[in-house]
Design a protein around this nucleic acid. Structure first.
Length: 249
DNA sequence: TCCCTTGTTATGAA
DNA sequence: CTTCATAACAAGGG
């Protein structure tokens, strides 16, 4: 569920149902961070996504849903786990489980910059490159997960992008040849759209080249280690992916 | 049954 | 004050 492309699937699914502005007829769920009465009898004016955030926009505020690691949603269905937020609309019921819910006041555009949403039309690769150049000591496995640079990229995308560009996860930004830096930014977006396509086809895992794999496409052994600041699992091929070192003067 | 994870934040140490 | 590391939380699949 949680990486950016999956949120786009949810947004598209719901947007297709509602060309108009549905009114919230009932609000259910145990979400504590928000005053549910705020939503009652209000019209939803838009559904948006930003990175891993799903946004339900009202005139004066926006409800933000973050699915974290285990979050799910159901359309016109229920399940046994406690409901975090349920919205009853005229035609449909939207149920969200195991997610974090927040209310953002005012215009949603004041809260987000879509230039760093990896899935957005507004995506700005030059801005991403500039931010990367400002953190020369950072590791490539960490920067890909940085939501201020690549909003929407998660652990799967991180691993697959690094394999695609044949760069070792422990390479520092300052050591990356310029062409590889560009490729990093370009593939972060490219792979995210492949992820979107394959997720819709239900073939995502079939296309993994390193993530959760035992060997890479060239039949080399895959390493699986907790790397980077956050110690997230990193899958990579020592033979295919090059560890760049900055040249000593 | 146990182990693992598409993620983030609160907390406290340094 | 800031930065960093660790703990905490969650549900379902293999």
């Amino acid at each position: 569920m949680p990486e950016g492309p999956s949120i786009v699937i949810l947004k598209d699914l719901i947007k297709d149902l509602y060309l108009g502005k549905p009114e919230v007829l009932e609000v259910a769920g145990n979400a504590k961070n928000i005053d549910k009465d705020r939503l009652l009898h209000q019209k939803i004016i838009d559904f948006k996504s930003w990175g891993k955030h799903f946004l339900i926009c009202f005139k004066d505020f926006t409800v933000r849903i973050h699915f974290m690691l285990f979050g799910t949603y159901l359309l016109n269905q229920e399940k046994k786990t406690p409901l975090t937020l349920g919205l009853v609309l005229k035609k449909d019921v939207l149920n969200f489980y195991t997610c974090k819910v927040d209310l953002l006041e005012g215009n949603v555009k004041e809260h987000y910059n879509w230039e760093n949403d990896i899935m957005a039309e507004e995506w700005n690769s030059r801005a991403a490159i500039k931010k990367l150049k400002d953190m020369p000591e950072a590791l490539v496995c960490d920067v890909l997960m940085d939501q201020q640079i690549f909003s929407g990229v998660g652990n799967i995308i991180k691993n697959e992008v690094l394999y695609r560009i044949r760069v070792h996860p422990l390479t520092k930004i300052k050591s990356l040849p310029p062409a590889k830096l560009k490729a990093l930014v370009k593939e972060a977006r490219n792979y995210s759209f492949d992820f979107l396509k394959w997720k819709k086809e239900n073939t995502l895992s079939k296309h993994w080249e390193v993530y959760s794999q035992k060997e890479c496409p060239r039949k080399h052994n895959i390493e699986k280690k907790e790397l980077g600041k956050t110690h997230r699992q990193t899958y990579y091929c020592e033979k295919c992916q090059k560890l760049y070192h900055q040249k000593e003067k």
